[in-house]
Design a protein around this nucleic acid. Structure first.
Lengths: 110, 110
DNA sequence: TCCATATTTCCATTTTTATAGAAATATTGG
DNA sequence: CCAATATTTCTATAAAAATGGAAATATGGA
């Protein structure tokens, strides 16, 4: 992942409404949720919601899937994991270290 | 971690210069780097750098340590890991799923 | 086709964020 | 204490992002 892409992804998540949308979709799983459902769950006006969905989509964090007259949005887990890996990349110059180790599976040392 | 804190943390990282600072400090390890070194490495003006360091500090992502007349900043690995855990929390409603699994150690299912 | 409903685009407004020059503050070695 | 250097704060300006009403567009059932 490039730094530019990472900033785009982080910017997408760095906002109350969008973070709430993303976490709601993470919880919802691969089936996702339709726009109306997201809006009524989070109490967001249609135009505002559409704006934020576009931002998240543009960042690659969520994906749209048309089904009948509804559009289902679902979380893109791969994009999220790429971001997590990027953030811990080359930690401590690549030297193993024991600092606050909770995430290790992606090759990060701390 | 609260959603509000997560937005603060994500906002801190969602900016070119700040992401570069943070990643530089992640690479530098616990010893950290002095402000002047960060500035010359990244080519950022003092006032601008100070502004961004404050933002990152306020978000808890980096820590200042005075030593002689220099101030060393270093990455706060624990804060980063909390953020990562928060983002994957309650994934797929808590059901195990096989979607794009790269980060597993923090209890996330995907 | 026509209507109802879902979602997006357009637009104007308000709020927030980034930038850096210049001045102020702090620390310490001499 | 003074001088030198490190870092921050002040201030103004420029740029970007969030919001929601109203109108436009799409989709599918009747």
């Amino acid at each position: 992942m490039e730094s530019k892409a990472a900033v785009l992804t982080l910017s997408a998540l760095a906002q109350d409404t969008r973070l709430a949308i993303f976490r709601l979709l993470v919880t919802a799983g691969p089936a996702g949720l339709v726009v109306g459902r997201i809006g009524e769950t989070l109490g967001v006006a249609p135009a505002t919601l559409s704006f934020h969905l576009k931002e998240l989509t543009h960042a690659g964090l969520i994906t749209a899937r048309q089904e009948s007259r509804f559009i289902h949005y679902s979380a893109n887990y791969a994009a999220m994991n790429e971001l997590l890996a990027f953030l811990t990349e080359n930690c401590c110059g690549g030297m193993p270290c024991g600092v606050a180790s909770t995430v290790q599976a992606n090759g990060a040392c701390c």
